[in-house]
Structures are given as C-alpha cells and as structure tokens.
Design a protein around this nucleic acid. Structure first.
Length: 137
DNA sequence: GCCAACGTTGGC
DNA sequence: GCCAACGTTGGC
C-alpha cells in the first residue's frame, strides 16, 4: 500500500465535487507534468491519498482512494498523458494546513512543503501516519 | 495581483 | 545537446 497526495484548486474541482461523484469517483485528468504522471503510473488500485486544496484553503481536507490504475487521459488526444481514477473515502476531521505541515518536524521533508508545484506527490508511510494522527483519525 | 520557482519549448 | 525565453503554478 502506497500513499499519495493529489492537489486541486477547489474553485475548479474541490473535495465537495469529488464527494458528489460518489463511489464511481472521477478521472484525475489534466495532469501535464511527467513527474506527476509517473507517480500516477506507479499507483495501484486501493492506494490511498490526501486531497489537498491549493490556493484556497491550502490544506489537506480528505482521503481519497485509487479505484482505477493509469489509463489514457480522456481530456487529451496526446498519448503521453495518463491518469488514474479516484473516489472520496472520508473527510479529515481536522484538515491539515500547509502552515501546520511546515511547523510539524515530522513533515518537514514532505514534497508538499518543499516542492509545492508538483500536483501529484508521494507521501511516505511515516508522513501518512503523522497526518492521520494530526487530522484526528 | 504579484512574483519566484520550476518545467517545457525551441533556436542554435 | 545546451540554454535562453517563455508559460504556468501556487504561496504570499
């Protein structure tokens, strides 16, 4: 089981939008960055991830699950781009803000803290455990 | 709204 | 294959 972090601007596609999709989830399309794509290719069905709101909120608000492994991105004809499908699992009782992550010593090496521009990121087991605890899970 | 950081593109 | 120019992202 691997852990990930998915970033989205809530005014474009936010946590509530994913929740509204229910168990069918949604394609995580539109990624046009090789690093991010490669992480999606590495995902397995059942992997869990954080849903992070960039720009507005700047906090991780929920847990998502990978329900379909990498497949061609239907939002483009360019065969280079692939995406996975994710669904909302549950909200975090206490969202984890970027500020909080920066202040938490156990999270100082998180990709989110050091390379905020990468839109799909890996999260280590230790980071995941720390975040779950801080989030009240 | 600004600007720094980063990734990608394209000319050489 | 290098590197300058450009566009985009995202924190502030």
């Amino acid at each position: 089981m691997a852990y990930w972090l998915f970033k989205s601007e809530p005014d474009v596609f936010g946590w509530d939008d994913l929740v509204a999709k229910g168990d069918k989830g949604e394609e995580w399309d539109g990624v046009r960055n090789y690093q991010a794509r490669n992480f999606m290719r590495a995902m397995k069905a059942g992997d869990l991830g954080l849903f992070y709101h960039s720009n507005i909120g700047k906090e991780a608000v929920g847990i998502v699950q990978v329900i379909a492994e990498a497949h061609p991105d239907s939002s483009t004809d360019d065969p280079r781009w692939e995406c996975v499908d994710v669904k909302a699992v549950k909200p975090l009782p206490r969202p984890i803000s970027l500020d909080q992550a920066k202040q938490e010593p156990a999270l100082k090496d998180m990709v989110l803290v050091n390379n905020s521009r990468l839109s799909v990121q890996p999260v280590t087991d230790a980071e995941w455990a720390t975040i779950m605890k801080l989030a009240g899970l």
